[in-house]
Amino acid sequence: MKHVLSALVNNTPGVTSRVSSLFRRRGYNIDSFIGSSTEDERFSRLTIVVRGDDIVIAQVISQLQKLEDIISIEDIQQESMISKVLLFMKVKADVGDRVGMIVVANACNARVIEMSKDYLILEALDSEDRITEMIEIFKPYGIIELVKTGVVAMKR
């Protein structure tokens, strides 16, 4: 089952490695791991998406809570959070395909942020499911490169 963990941590070197190593120890692969500064420069916010057994994740959370550098950590329930993923995608765009692609992009709530004679770069900010869908929709055109953030989430 998928879990979204939100942690407030000290903004010091080595914190991300301490946190991620606890998942590695369990042999869990992290889906996404986002860290950024907060309004208070002493702290950073980590948003971690990981799939795993509920009991094990609960255990990892209590182990994380013990770490001195972790101020607070919470498993945010899907229904009580707002979340978004940011996507950049470079897609092959032959002259013939271009107009159709832009229409599809609009329908997906994506913007064209760069256009060249061979490709388009699209930007989209949406829920994880819709981003996944959009990637599927554009696959037939030929994706050259894509990058997306993991889930950024906040409790309502």
Partner: peptide, 9 residues
């Protein structure tokens, strides 16, 4: 290593 279901315990 210990059995994989016991890892981390």
């Amino acid at each position: 290593q210990v059995s994989s279901e016991l890892l981390g315990r």
